[in-house]
């Protein structure tokens, strides 16, 4: 017997006590009451900031100025090839991510992307690496991540996010800058991922 069949046979033997006619649906799972989030956008801003990320709220008209401020001092900025042109900032040299090798990504000062959605309750930004969000390595290797989130992309809780997302796309859920609690369980920001996370909340 190969390993697969042996394991499945052992599983079936182990479950002898489970009635033959029981289906997965027979194991009842209590329904969750969805928590009501009165001001998702305000809560999102507050909770992202709790992780020591920078959060700036602005109107679409103010966005170019806020972008310029966020990117002050950045020399070479990585941008996904499909980043909407109205988000292209003035100032830094823009480097389009045309499947650059990782060592090239490592030599850049920052990356600018959009997001798929934001979760208010947990202060989380979710990327599904669709248009404007870049491939997964793009928001990982450079040390600064500037992320533009529209207020109409903010959902209340984790349940709302899971319901809206497509599991067949790769996803990165980001809650603040890279951090660790590994030394004396004390959270410190800044390990392998971007050490600075700058969120522009537009709308």
């Amino acid at each position: 017997m190969n390993a697969r069949d042996a394991i499945l046979a052992r599983v079936r033997t182990a479950l002898r006590d489970v009635p033959r006619d029981e289906t997965p649906a027979d194991v009842e799972v209590p329904r969750l009451t969805a928590p009501v989030v009165p001001d998702p956008v305000g809560l999102f801003a507050e909770r992202v900031a709790d992780y020591k990320a920078t959060v700036v709220r602005c109107t679409p008209a103010e966005l170019p100025d806020r972008l310029a401020e966020a990117l002050d001092g950045v020399g070479r900025l990585l941008v996904p090839t499909d980043l909407p042109p109205d988000l292209h900032p003035a100032g830094p040299e823009l480097v389009a991510d045309t499947h650059l090798p990782v060592t090239a990504l490592d030599a850049l000062d920052g990356v600018l992307t959009t997001a798929r959605l934001g979760i208010a309750e947990t202060g989380t930004i979710v990327l599904d690496h669709g248009p404007g969000q870049g491939r997964r390595a793009a928001t990982l290797v450079p040390d600064l991540h500037v992320c533009v989130v529209r207020t109409d992309q903010v959902v209340g809780g984790v349940s709302d996010a899971v319901a809206a997302l497509d599991p067949h796309r790769p996803q990165t859920w980001i809650s603040g800058p890279s951090a660790t609690s590994d030394i004396e369980l004390d959270r410190v920001e800044g390990v392998h991922g971007p050490r600075t996370l700058h969120v522009l909340l537009v709308g």
């Binding site: 202060g123 067949h168 980001i174």
Partner: peptide
């Protein structure tokens, strides 16, 4: 924490 800094999800090969 309310959420850990990073959660990665992937389905086979992209």
């Amino acid at each position: 924490e309310r959420m850990n800094p990073y959660t990665s999800m992937w389905t086979g090969v992209t």
